[in-house]
Simulated assay, not measured.
Amino acid sequence: MNNNQCSFCPYYMNHTSYASLNTNLRSTTQKFASFSGIVERIEDFYPGQYDKNAGCYKLMSLESIDGGPINFVISPETYFVNHELIEIGDSVTGFFNSNAPTILIYPPQYNAIVMAKQVEHENVTVDYFNDELISSNGNLKLNLTKSTPVLLANDQLFNMYPSNRNLIVVYGPTTKSIPAQTNPYKIIVLC
């Protein structure tokens, strides 16, 4: 067999390109998606029969304004913005990893990474922010001030610049520029 061929691929393949492709596939960043709606039901969720974590997981059912239902599995690792207690009837937004495999059921069911209760004059986004603190979709740029709290999920201070990371951003008004700019109320770094 020629050295430029893979054992499983009968065609010529440049190994340098293959290594680059393989690295790019392995280093995909987490892509967040969200769903907003009204909480219709909260109940215990049992990940397995006779599981020692019984009672630690919840299933939160939301109904969107257009009538589409969705379920979020709430785990002990799910971060609740402002540590809000969410109850039936609350308007919330749930964020999940859109790259994660999901089971094909109706209504759709996702593992919640972040849950945010909708509060007037307050926006929440979860995304990857680059070295210029611009979101992965290019729609939001963060302008930090000395008074902007940058925290870990356990409410301890994060003492580094929060660029090139997945962030939970709590913010208010934005400019009408592209990308929209804002001075965040609070940033939580997802380590």
Score class of each variant (00 low, 15 high):
Tyr171Phe: 13
Ala33Thr: 10
Lys117Ala: 02
Tyr57Asp: 07
Phe80Ile: 09
Glu63Trp: 02
Phe45Ile: 05
Pro101Tyr: 14
Glu122Cys: 04
Met115Ala: 07
Tyr57Ala: 02
Leu142Tyr: 03
Asn159Pro: 08
Asn97Ala: 12
Gly48Thr: 03
Ser135Gln: 04
Gln30Pro: 14
Arg41Asn: 09
Asn82Cys: 10
Ile42Trp: 01
Phe96Ala: 10
Asp66Tyr: 11
Val39Tyr: 06
Ser91Leu: 00
Tyr79Leu: 15
Asn143Trp: 02
Ile105Pro: 11
Asn139Thr: 12
Val73Lys: 01
Tyr171His: 15
Pro149Leu: 09
Glu87Tyr: 00
Asn111Tyr: 05
Ser177Ile: 04
Asn111Ser: 15
Asn139Trp: 07
Gly48Val: 08
Phe72Val: 10
Ser36Tyr: 03
Phe35Asn: 01
Ser135Thr: 00
Asn99His: 13
Val119Cys: 10
Lys58Val: 06
Pro47Cys: 10
Met60Gln: 07
Asn71Arg: 11
Val170Ile: 14
Gly55Glu: 04
Asp44Val: 05
Gly89Tyr: 01
Ser98Lys: 05
Pro107Gln: 06
Met60Arg: 02
Ile38Cys: 15
Arg41Ile: 03
Gly68Arg: 06
Tyr106Gln: 13
Val114Arg: 07
Pro76Leu: 14
Thr78Ser: 12
Ala54Val: 12
Gly94Ile: 02
Gly67Leu: 04
Ile42Val: 03
Leu133Arg: 01
Gln156Asp: 14
Phe35Met: 06
Ile178Pro: 15
Leu151Asn: 01
Leu62Ala: 11
Lys117Gly: 04
Ser34Trp: 00
Gly172Trp: 02
Lys31Trp: 01
Ser98Tyr: 02
Lys52Asn: 09
Phe35Ser: 04
Asn130Glu: 06
Gln118Glu: 07
Val81Asn: 02
Pro47Thr: 10
Glu77Leu: 12
Gln118Asp: 09
Lys146Asp: 04
Met60Phe: 09
Val124Thr: 02
Leu104Ala: 08
Asn154His: 07
Ile65Pro: 05
Tyr50Phe: 13
Ile74Val: 07
Gln156Met: 15
Thr93Glu: 04
Lys146Val: 08
Thr174Glu: 04
